[in-house]
């Protein structure tokens, strides 16, 4: 599903945030990406949805070769992916319903289909009763659930999340993880960068540890590490 081969990413300021990354993530996997701040986790994630282009090496997502992907075809790639961020990235002037429907309008779905599918995903994240509210009227956890709903509304094969629980309290974080597990059970590949030791150690999944732009550990059912 996701392959990287000898990927190097050097930012214009000279920082090498990915230094020879080779990895293979299969359809349906659930992968944590861990590592200290500045290790290159976000860069690793950004390379997957072509927010950043690799300086060298190859990135393939869902059969699309990102190294040769033309700018005009990036929307095609993005439609195969869902992306979730620490800061939710919701549109403040749109209601919960509109924020989710937005992702379907943008790809010109049928209005009937949009109504049906938006309610479906809002039910999955447990927000069916708050469709008319604005993001500002919701708690952080609820806002993140809206953003997750938006990310999966177009049935992506891969869900990419960069510290999705970074701004949430522990209890809310567990609720978010339940939703991710449910999405993963339905067959969606999940790649999630996180700092949350408790979650990684409790819900055991594949763990990829990055340090200095390199994969230093790749372990199925591994723990968070960095005990010291």
């Amino acid at each position: 599903m996701i392959q990287m081969k000898n990927v190097i990413k050097k930012y214009p300021n000279g920082v090498v945030a990915a230094n020879g990354i080779t990895v293979n993530i299969k359809q349906g996997e659930f992968v944590y990406v861990v590592g200290p701040s500045g290790a290159g986790k976000s860069t690793f994630i950004k390379l997957m949805y072509r927010e950043e282009k690799p300086t060298s090496g190859e990135v393939t997502v869902s059969g699309i070769n990102l190294s040769t992907l033309k700018n005009g075809r990036v929307p095609h790639l993005r439609r195969q992916l869902g992306v979730v961020f620490q800061d939710f990235k919701l549109l403040p002037r749109l209601s919960v319903y509109e924020n989710v429907a937005f992702a379907m309008e943008v790809i010109e779905e049928q209005p009937k289909e949009i109504r049906k599918r938006v309610m479906e995903v809002l039910e999955l994240v447990g927000l069916k009763h708050k469709v008319r509210m604005l993001p500002s009227e919701l708690s952080g956890g609820e806002q993140q659930r809206v953003s997750i709903a938006r990310s999966i509304v177009n049935n992506p094969k891969v869900l990419i999340a960069d510290e999705p629980t970074g701004n949430l309290d522990p209890e809310t974080s567990w609720e978010i993880m339940e939703i991710f597990e449910e999405i993963n059970r339905q067959g969606t590949t999940i790649v999630m960068a996180t700092h949350n030791r408790e979650i990684v150690n409790t819900i055991r999944k594949r763990v990829i540890a990055i340090e200095g732009g390199m994969i230093v550990r790749d372990e199925y059912g591994g723990d968070y590490g960095y005990e010291g």
């Binding site: 005009g72 990036v74 929307p75 993005r78 439609r79 990235k89 937005f102 992702a103 790809i107 177009n154």
Partner: peptide, 10 residues
């Protein structure tokens, strides 16, 4: 940014 992220064309 969000439009581009969810796959809107230019």
């Amino acid at each position: 940014e969000i439009m581009k992220l969810v796959g809107a064309t230019n």
